[in-house]
Design a protein around this nucleic acid. Structure first.
Length: 758
DNA sequence: AGCGAGACTTAGCATTGGGCGA
DNA sequence: TCGCCCAATGCTAAGTCTCGCT
């Protein structure tokens, strides 16, 4: 596994805690709460960065790797590939290399009919060019050739069985045949008995995304429901009846009154400005100061409403639920190429006040109501077009099968386009996801070459090359995002790698006993703070000094670089390579390494799952996926501790009982008392296990306080790694993936065997 | 090359609802 | 059976990257 990424280890050993040792900093107060004090700082600090030399292996080694790589490209000496060749259909579909089975396996009428495709599969001579690789595995442009293999269906059947066995038949595991919802839920709704396995089918070529698309259009937000007239608004202490338009916007503000941001200047200013636009001229002339507005009655009214909603009877709740279900059934699905597919967001975003994240200059602005006249519908010509609500019409109906969206509109805050698209379980999303991981796996094959290249480039005579090389090093080592430029004043001030400014790093010749430490402190995506102290190689350090020379804090660190230059370069290194592939690659390879390191096959299932979560956590830390500690965190931790204490007591009791039973048995020496001892022994064991389970849970939760595992699980970790791990250690897949996740990763669950290797 | 529009993925927070213990 | 709590789901903002134009 040449893709080893030793730097990752460094972040993990300590049991994977988020590094928040920056608490004393008072920049970015906003996010400060996330980085509260942590007792293990020191410890973590040490272990986290102990591994500064992570890629310091000699240049020579890299050169050798380079040679190896070239060989790999020829496809002849790749052991791994040979090993996997016979079995892995997924490699067949997305992997760039020609495989034997390609040549024997399929007739590929599709390919034949498209002359420009011939060479991808057949002629070895083409293998030499980098270009070919891309083409071959670019899902969108190449047909899959899967079905042609003869033994395939047989294998498939076998596999499917395995999967089914692995998935413990629980109450209502989705639509596997023969399984009826056992708990009598009315929702034994007949999902298609056999889930469609799109991953076994051919893919489209030429950027066509579908041939047929039919849907019912979007669901609009309910019209404004005026508040009762006894709920009053006061201006300057005097009751004032607002026009419906002005009133609606006022209710948006009233609903947010409890939020901190209604106290923020920018928010109030933006809101007031937009609110005034909705007022009648009379209202406008009267209402000139937001501070004189009293929304409290409105606010109380809405609070009461939500209480009332909670207190509804079962029947009422059920009714609402049924209505939602009906809406889902009617609007939540579309037909794309003969298959009914779930739509992700079929409801149009309701109007409200915009709340950007972080210090957003547009917070508080009015997000206007979307009307049918704003909507562009996309569907196929020969489908039944969705109807606009009576008396309205669509802005446009188009038939563009080169895109995946069903509906779009332009949002008024940033002027960007919003879309209605399909659910992650859909073919169109799944294929793309699968392809993403295949690209990352290709990076694995050449990452050493790329690393040695950027290390070389640190010495380049050209500034732009050096900057590019250092930036790439950060992206690779620290999993930073690319960092596109952003329009100033339009969004919160956040950065990624290429947009780092001098003020975001400080250099320390020596720090905490380590040489050449770079201290990062900046706000990244969603204004989440990235804080990290990283020992780097001397050459990187010197380069950074050079880049920062004679610059102001607000100047760009990489003034000769942007994402487009970087990505163009990456594209030359490997087809399909962009900055974000490194994140995917490093995340997945880290998971795989950590799993193999942390999993102890002797341990029981909860312990193994803790290991899994720790591996997952290592990735989340690498990718800086944070969350605000849940509001009820302390309390729920306490609750758990109480449970643990109770369990301990119970255990003590059980042990005592066992002891006395033993004593008893010694005296009596009869069958009955012996049996009693056995029973007590069992009881002790049972309680011990329960205790252990609780303790594991507590550890897991504590470690997870500020770390969000979901994002990496959903977007960065090749699901086949997890599936393989489950199979290898006999862990039911439900322990790792919930229902939604299992739907999204159905392809991986179906195809990955226990020996899958990323 | 630089730019803006467009399409699509990635992200954290808010709300919901269902399971579970009292 | 009820109410609590947390996992699941829903929501939509904020990124990345490509493409076509100038």
């Amino acid at each position: 596994m040449s893709g080893d990424h030793s730097h990752n280890d460094s972040q993990i050993e300590s049991g994977s805690r988020y590094n928040d040792s920056h608490k004393h900093k008072d920049k970015y107060k906003d996010k400060e709460h996330r980085h509260k004090d942590h007792k293990k700082d020191k410890e973590r600090e040490k272990s986290k960065y102990s591994n500064s030399e992570h890629r310091d292996s000699s240049d020579k080694k890299h050169r050798d790797k380079d040679k190896e790589r070239l060989k790999l490209k020829d496809g002849s000496s790749d052991k791994q590939k040979d090993k996997h060749k016979e079995k892995k259909k997924e490699e067949r579909s997305f992997d760039g290399k020609p495989k034997k089975e390609r040549e024997n396996g399929f007739a590929s009428p599709l390919i034949k009919s498209e002359p420009e495709n011939d060479d991808f599969y057949l002629s070895p001579k083409h293998e030499k060019s980098l270009k070919r690789e891309r083409d071959d595995d670019d899902a969108e442009f190449k047909p899959k050739k899967i079905k042609t293999e003869d033994d395939r269906s047989e294998k498939k059947a076998k596999k499917r069985k395995q999967v089914e066995e692995d998935i413990k038949p629980k109450k209502k595991t989705k639509g596997k045949k023969g399984e009826v919802a056992t708990d009598g839920k009315k929702k034994a709704k007949k999902e298609p008995e056999d889930k469609w396995k799109w991953w076994e089918e051919e893919r489209y070529t030429d950027g066509v995304k579908w041939k047929f698309l039919e849907h019912k259009g979007p669901v609009f937000a309910p019209p404004y429901d005026p508040i009762p007239s006894n709920v009053k608004f006061y201006y300057d202490g005097k009751h004032m009846k607002l026009s419906p338009e002005a009133e609606e916007v006022a209710t948006f503000f009233a609903k947010m009154l409890d939020h901190e941001y209604t106290t923020k200047d920018i928010f109030r200013k933006n809101f007031f400005k937009d609110w005034r636009k909705e007022m009648t001229s009379e209202e406008k002339s009267k209402i000139s100061d937001l501070n004189k507005c009293d929304f409290s009655e409105m606010s109380e009214y809405f609070k009461a409403q939500s209480e009332a909603r909670k207190a509804m009877t079962k029947e009422e709740k059920l009714k609402i639920k049924e209505e939602n279900e009906r809406l889902l059934q009617e609007y939540g699905f579309c037909v794309m190429d003969n298959h009914k597919e779930r739509i992700a967001n079929f409801r149009i975003e309701p109007p409200g006040l915009f709340r950007g994240r972080g210090d957003h200059p547009k917070m508080g602005m009015l997000k206007r109501r979307i009307r049918p006249e704003d909507i562009i519908v996309n569907c196929s010509k020969d489908s039944k077009h969705p109807k606009p609500p009576p008396g309205t019409k669509w802005k446009e109906v188009r038939h563009d099968n080169k895109v995946t969206w069903l509906v779009s509109w332009t949002e008024n805050i940033q002027g960007s386009i919003k879309y209605i698209m399909l659910n992650p379980s859909s073919r169109i999303k799944g294929e793309k996801d699968w392809q993403k991981y295949e690209t990352a796996r290709r990076l694995k094959k050449c990452v050493e070459r790329i690393r040695s290249q950027y290390r070389e480039d640190w010495k380049s005579k050209e500034m732009r090359i050096r900057q590019r090389a250092v930036a790439l090093y950060f992206i690779d080592k620290l999993a930073l995002r690319a960092g596109n430029e952003k329009e100033e004043g339009e969004t919160a001030d956040t950065v990624g790698c290429c947009s780092l400014r001098v003020e975001h790093l400080s250099l320390h010749q020596e720090m905490d006993g380590q040489e050449f430490v770079v201290e990062f402190d900046f706000l990244g995506k969603d204004s989440i703070r990235y804080y990290n102290k990283v020992p780097v190689e001397k050459r990187v350090f010197k380069n950074l000094q050079l880049f920062m020379e004679d610059k102001e804090p607000e100047d760009d660190l990489f003034d000769r670089l942007n994402t487009s230059i970087l990505n163009k370069h990456l594209q030359e290194l490997m087809d399909g390579l962009t900055a974000k592939v490194f994140r995917t690659y490093n995340a997945s390879i880290t998971l795989q390494q950590q799993l193999s390191e942390l999993t102890n096959s002797e341990e029981n299932v909860p312990a193994k799952i803790l290991s899994y979560n720790r591996a997952n956590r290592a990735v989340a830390i690498l990718c800086n996926h944070q969350r605000a500690p849940p509001k009820t965190f302390e309390k729920s931790m306490q609750n758990l501790q109480t449970k643990i204490d109770a369990k301990k007591e119970q255990l003590a009791d059980a042990k005592r009982e066992l002891k006395s039973a033993k004593a008893d048995a010694k005296v009596r020496r009869d069958e009955k008392s012996k049996k009693a001892v056995e029973t007590k022994k069992k009881a002790v064991e049972r309680v011990e296990e329960q205790l252990m389970k609780l303790e594991v849970q507590a550890t897991d939760r504590e470690e997870n306080k500020q770390i969000a595992l979901g994002t990496s699980k959903l977007n960065y970790l090749d699901p086949r790694i997890s599936v393989a791990w489950c199979k290898k250690f006999d862990i039911p897949i439900e322990k790792i993936y919930n229902k939604t996740q299992r739907e999204k990763f159905a392809w991986a669950i179906d195809m990955a065997e226990k020996d899958f290797e990323f």
